[in-house]
């Protein structure tokens, strides 16, 4: 049952994250705290236990499916957006265009052609 073992790891780290947030009052999500703790633990261990990989890989592969129920919800709140959809769409489209150009330009300047393969 290596995958089940790994799943218990993942859930435990998520629960630890929940406790950390409860007591620290930090405005982070427990998943993020769990992720950072897991990464730190693996760095200390120096390797990825096979049981953890057996649970983590299929879960990451299924991420798209796990967010689908939420994505579908957007089709059912379109009415509530009346009058605001233009602001959202415009902000998202132009905003993403600007940030894509900024990212590419910044990285090009910082990494430079010297290292390009």
């Amino acid at each position: 049952m290596p995958a089940l073992n790994g799943l218990l790891w993942l859930i435990s780290y998520w629960l630890i994250g929940e406790v950390v947030i409860h007591f620290s009052g930090l405005p982070f999500s427990s998943g993020v705290v769990g992720m950072l703790l897991l990464c730190a633990t693996l760095a200390v261990l120096g390797r990825v236990p096979s049981s953890l990989a057996a649970a983590a890989q299929p879960l990451i592969a299924l991420l798209a499916m796990l967010i689908m129920p939420g994505v579908v919800g957007v089709f059912f709140i379109l009415d509530e957006l009346a009058g605001q959809w233009f602001a959202i769409l415009f902000g998202l489209l132009l905003g993403t265009l600007l940030s894509v150009i900024t990212t590419l330009w910044l990285l090009k300047r910082l990494i430079g052609h010297a290292h390009a393969r």
């Binding site: 799943l7 993942l10 859930i11 780290y13 998520w14 994250g17 999500s29 427990s30 998943g31 993020v32 769990g34 992720m35 950072l36 703790l37 897991l38 990464c39 693996l42 760095a43 990825v48 953890l52 990989a53 649970a55 983590a56 890989q57 879960l59 990451i60 299924l62 991420l63 499916m65 796990l66 967010i67 129920p69 939420g70 579908v72 919800g73």
Partner: peptide, 25 residues
């Protein structure tokens, strides 16, 4: 639908934690 689908979406928690693995790699 969403109430039923919670049985799937609850896995988002451990799936987020799982992202710590590629991050380490």
């Amino acid at each position: 639908y969403q109430q039923g689908a919670t049985w799937l979406t609850i896995l988002l928690g451990p799936a987020t934690v799982a992202l710590g693995m590629p991050l380490y790699q």
